Simulated assay, not measured.
Amino acid sequence: MKRLTFLLCLNVLFASAQTTKDSLALANAPWKTETLAKGVIWKYAHFQQKELFEANQSVNIVEVSRKARKFVWEIITADSLNKRDKKRGQLRKTSQLAQENDAFLAINGGFFDVKNGGSVDFIKINGQTPDTTRALKGSKAAFHGQAGIAVDKKNFQILRGEPLVGWEYLLPYNNIMLSGPLLRWENKDEVLPKNAFNDNRHPRSCVCTTKSGKTLLITVDGRSAESYGMNLSELTFLTRQLGCSSALNLDGGGSTTLWLKEKGVVNYPSDNKKFDHEGERSVSNALILKLLTRKNK
Rank of each mutant, 00 (worst) to 15 (best):
L26A: 05
L24N: 13
E74C: 05
I176P: 01
D189L: 10
V64Q: 07
L36P: 08
S282V: 13
G254C: 08
I75Q: 01
K87M: 11
S16G: 05
V151H: 00
G222P: 08
D152C: 05
E234W: 02
E226R: 12
P203Y: 08
A17Q: 11
S246E: 01
S95C: 07
L171H: 04
K87F: 12
E186A: 15
C9M: 10
K295D: 12
P269E: 09
T236P: 00
A55R: 07
D79V: 00
P172V: 07
L232K: 04
L4P: 02
E74M: 04
P181C: 10
C9T: 09
K137S: 10
C244S: 11
S212C: 06
G229E: 11
R201Y: 12
A55Y: 00
I218D: 00
L216D: 03
R92F: 11
L235C: 08
R184F: 01
R3M: 14
L178K: 03
I176K: 00
S246T: 15
T77Y: 02
R3P: 00
T133N: 15
L91T: 04
L250A: 06
G127H: 09
F122W: 15
N60C: 12
R240I: 02
L287C: 07
A135F: 13
D276K: 09
L36E: 11
L136I: 10
R201M: 09
L91Y: 05
K140Y: 06
V266S: 04
A147Y: 08
L238K: 00
N28D: 12
Y268V: 04
N296E: 07
Q99T: 07
N231I: 00
H46K: 11
T215I: 14
L13M: 13
T20M: 13
F104K: 01
L242Q: 09
L7W: 14
R294C: 02
T210R: 05
A147H: 05
P172Q: 13
T257V: 07
I76R: 06
D152H: 08
Q48R: 14
F143V: 11
S23P: 01
L97N: 07
K86E: 11
D131E: 13
I75P: 00
V220S: 04
